[in-house]
């Protein structure tokens, strides 16, 4: 019953690949590429054996070191990074861009280079490093070294993300608060910070996750005490791939938890 023009059209529809379908097809390949190895990792170790190996003292030590150091690094990055982010968000001019470039530098620097750079300041041969050793507080091959390496590499995340969050807060609200007789600090604490909080928390989460996964700079600054990424590497080199799995899975779980946190924050009502 269909007319000629109708049949022509119905024949062309399946042929004409719509652009979104193509995009999804290409993107789908990428998503599979992300997911397949993760699933494969879980399948390669039986759950019982995984739990047994988790009790290995080396694994427990590495996990403790990683969580402790990443927590300290995140606190340090937040304490120094938030004021900087606020300043960057509320200042215009040549200097802002220059400072922002400095902040982004660790992001574009290969982490191993970051580690080398840090060694030239905090290493045993450098004045600061030497003084620290003399004071009984070595900055390499110590928890402090791990924190220094992680902070260097991970802190830009909190600065950049919090800057965007602060910029998202309407300045009119700050003006209103100050016009009501509240000073800068009261205004920041009661108006700006709460409104920027989802973004700040996202930045803190990213920083923590990045610190947990930090390998390159940490390797060079503090091979001991071993963090989880270093432990994975050591296990892989010395005992083979199988022995690297448990710690890898543990790190993966932490990353997934971080992702879940981020997603919860994004659905925040006032973002």
């Amino acid at each position: 019953m269909a007319t000629r023009s109708n049949s022509t059209r119905s024949r062309t529809i399946p042929l004409a690949l719509d652009w979104l379908t193509v995009a999804l097809g290409l993107g789908g390949v990428l998503c599979l590429y992300y997911l397949a190895p993760l699933v494969s990792l879980f399948l390669s170790v039986p759950p019982g054996e995984l739990l047994a190996r988790m009790n290995n003292p080396a694994v427990v030590d590495a996990a403790t070191t990683s969580v402790l150091s990443a927590s300290i690094s995140t606190v340090v990055a937040t304490v120094f990074g938030l004021p900087l982010a606020y300043w960057l968000a509320r200042t215009d001019g040549r200097w802002t861009n220059a400072v922002l470039a400095v902040v982004v530098l660790p992001l574009v620097l290969p982490p191993t280079v970051g580690g080398i750079v840090l060694l030239t300041v905090f290493g045993p041969g450098a004045p600061i490093g030497e003084a620290a050793v003399a004071a009984g507080f070595p900055l390499t091959r110590s928890l402090a070294g791990v924190v220094l390496a992680q902070t260097f590499v991970a802190s830009p995340f909190v600065v950049v993300t919090a800057k965007a969050a602060f910029e998202g807060v309407d300045r009119t609200l700050e003006h209103a608060s100050r016009s009501l007789g509240k000073g800068r600090w009261t205004t920041a604490r009661n108006v700006t910070l709460p409104l920027a909080m989802p973004g700040i928390l996202a930045g803190v989460t990213l920083t923590f996750t990045r610190a947990m996964g930090e390998f390159g700079a940490t390797m060079i600054m503090a091979y001991y005490p071993r963090t989880m990424p270093v432990q994975i590497w050591v296990a892989f080199i010395e005992l083979g791939l199988d022995n690297a799995y448990p710690v890898a899975i543990l790190l993966l779980l932490i990353s997934v938890a971080a992702l879940a946190t981020l997603t919860t924050i994004v659905s925040n009502p006032w973002e």
Binding site: D170, T172, L173, H175, A176, S177, R178, S179, L180, G181, K182, G183, R184, N190, V191, P194, L195, W270
Partner: peptide, 20 residues
């Protein structure tokens, strides 16, 4: 003088209420 020390209060066009 900074805004908070003036004793003047500005009412904004859309109220500028703190949304949170």
């Amino acid at each position: 003088q900074p805004p908070e020390e003036r004793g003047t209060v500005l009412v904004f066009q859309d109220g500028a209420l703190f949304p949170h």
